[in-house]
Design a binder for these strands. Structure first.
Lengths: 344, 344
DNA sequence: TTGAAAGCGCTAACAT
DNA sequence: ATGTTAGCGCTTTCAA
């Protein structure tokens, strides 16, 4: 009993019913000014009565626009959930939803499959071209092919996070990771910590590179030695934080700048298990300010980044571009904030 | 510099280039058997060289199918995140993604807006009818209007969770909440607990009703009194669990059956803060088996429900219906499992 | 303010 | 195995 029996009412039915031409009906549904009030009302009445809904495919074919944007998240959410923080992508999806619904766009969601066939994943998106533009929510190496393809076919897109290639040609919204990390590290230095380690997240993620860079710059600015033994590159996971912190503790350290709150929370566990106190024995700074940062014991000092605003800004920018109301390319960096709690 | 300058290559261009008719090109891209190998190769070559991609709007208009399904999640994810567990919707989205990508469908995601205008939300979905069918991932009262509308316009849809109206007419995939809860409660009874309380989640959610019903049935089956004072209805949140457990402790209880793991974890906190031991003073059973259930201290006894399989099944069913390969309506209940850990 | 008519790009029935 | 043709439902000139 699926809906294939009774053909959809179409514009032509409405026109006949209302005794006007198809153009007039079209004008009414598109809010064209050149329709007399009488006609408009008559048509509206017929539309309501007949349950007419415009056929989007026909409209798209005619106008060459779909009123659809795609959101591309190349990693499987389940990875993200288990390994990173689910808050991040929930927030991104929600924020984009808000903007797109408000501006009458639908949202196509492309999430990476568990089968891991990235190329196939991107191809599928490119084949099924039913979106006017896209938002790429990731900044990892693996997507270079995709980005190049997007540039080639010249379809509008905005990245959340800085792209690994051609950053000056691509629209993106990010944060100033380098300065944020520098601020975090300098704060530790100012507090008197001297053996400051860092645990970076996934190295295919450009944020990790930038955050490490900020750490280095802070040390350099204060004439402190850069010790490779204090730099651990791993992943944006609690397990990684735990593992690397354990290792670092054995090296003798008095502070850790973690590449994300999730990492920091893992590290916190390792530190506490080692019988050390935070912040007295080891200070800890995270990055993101996820809800759990505030709830941690002790509450975590961290860099707050506005994930929601990143996504909102990206969505608005994309829709502005589609509306011809924005110049391209735009590179937007949103401010971050050091949130001091009790872990430092 | 957006992609509006050079018109898309269309099928007709390919046909001319290849020196064949449009139908032939169409046959090639649709893998029709009636094309000679020579022709096919020639056409394929031109397609590749020209970068031709079929225009989905034109195809949809012609075939009356969009190869798109919509996933509707009426609540904002941010609510869900802060209040419920993000694992649930991440899992649902991922599972549907797997199925739909595999079967060459794109996924439109409709998430409830923070502005809370539900009617408008549903209207938007109904207006922008670019999906062949939909999956409704919720079973709350507020959506009755929407469900009725879907039935009226006769568009295929499958619900995840039992609908609050017309359950015998609607396709859905759920679990046997009543029996699962009965099992959980009976387990507590068998373990010798006698003052067994329950904390139910949001009352607009049919799962809550069913789980409470199971609790009642278990008590009745063992000739134990049903004491309203031991039944607390609140929300699927840690805060609710904490709050209600605190209250219940003051009533004198020896076990709690929580309507979700999230609730149970909140309750756990309250119990421990009261200086009581789990399970010696108060036993605790949750529902869902989210990852945190296993990691809780003590690990939480709970009812495991296969969220991923629920979503997968719903997606497969919908696509089968769209392919004309499934009868309607179908009501599918997936099995659950009591997972005994240390909280009982 | 309204209508007539062309055409967006594709598929599918029919003819060959 | 291939081509011809009609038409899906809409918007948008252009003419009235």
């Amino acid at each position: 009993m699926s809906g294939k029996i009774n053909r959809q009412v179409s514009l032509i039915d409405v026109a006949e019913q209302a005794g006007v031409s198809r153009s007039t009906v079209s004008r009414v549904i598109n809010n064209d000014a050149y329709v007399s009030d009488a006609t408009r009302e008559k048509v509206l009445a017929v539309i309501k009565e007949s349950g007419y809904v415009p056929n989007m495919a026909a409209r798209s074919l005619r106008t060459q626009r779909n009123q659809v944007i795609a959101v591309v998240i190349p990693d499987p959410l389940s990875h993200i959930f288990s390994s990173d923080n689910p808050y991040y992508f929930s927030t991104i999806i929600q924020s984009i939803t808000e903007v797109s619904q408000q501006r009458d766009y639908a949202m196509l969601l492309w999430v990476g499959s568990l089968d891991g066939r990235r190329e196939r994943f991107y191809e599928r998106i490119l084949e099924k071209r039913i979106m006017d533009g896209l938002i790429l929510a990731a900044s990892v190496d693996e997507e270079q092919f995709f980005i190049e393809e997007l540039l080639t076919i010249d379809i509008p897109f905005v990245m959340i996070g800085r792209p690994t290639i051609q950053p000056d040609v691509i629209n993106y919204v990010s944060i100033d990771n380098v300065n944020a990390s520098k601020t975090a590290t300098e704060y530790l230095i100012q507090q008197g910590y001297r053996r400051i380690a860092t645990i970076a997240g996934n190295w295919n993620n450009i944020d990790s590179h930038e955050r490490l860079e900020g750490y280095k710059q802070a040390l350099a600015a204060h004439n402190m030695p850069y010790d490779e033994a204090l730099v651990r590159i791993d992943a944006f996971t609690m397990a990684a934080g735990y593992r690397q912190a354990k290792h670092l503790i054995s090296q003798g350290i008095d502070a850790i700048f973690a590449g994300s709150d999730i990492i920091a929370i893992g590290a916190m566990q390792a530190i506490q298990e080692a019988g050390l106190s935070i912040p007295d024995d080891v200070a800890l700074i995270g990055f993101d300010d996820i809800p759990n940062a505030r709830n941690a014991i002790p509450p975590l000092t961290t860099i707050r980044q506005p994930i929601d605003r990143k996504a909102e800004t990206a969505a608005s920018l994309l829709l502005d571009i589609l509306a011809g109301k924005a110049d391209e390319p735009q590179q937007i960096l949103l401010p971050t904030e050091l949130v001091v709690r009790s872990s430092t």
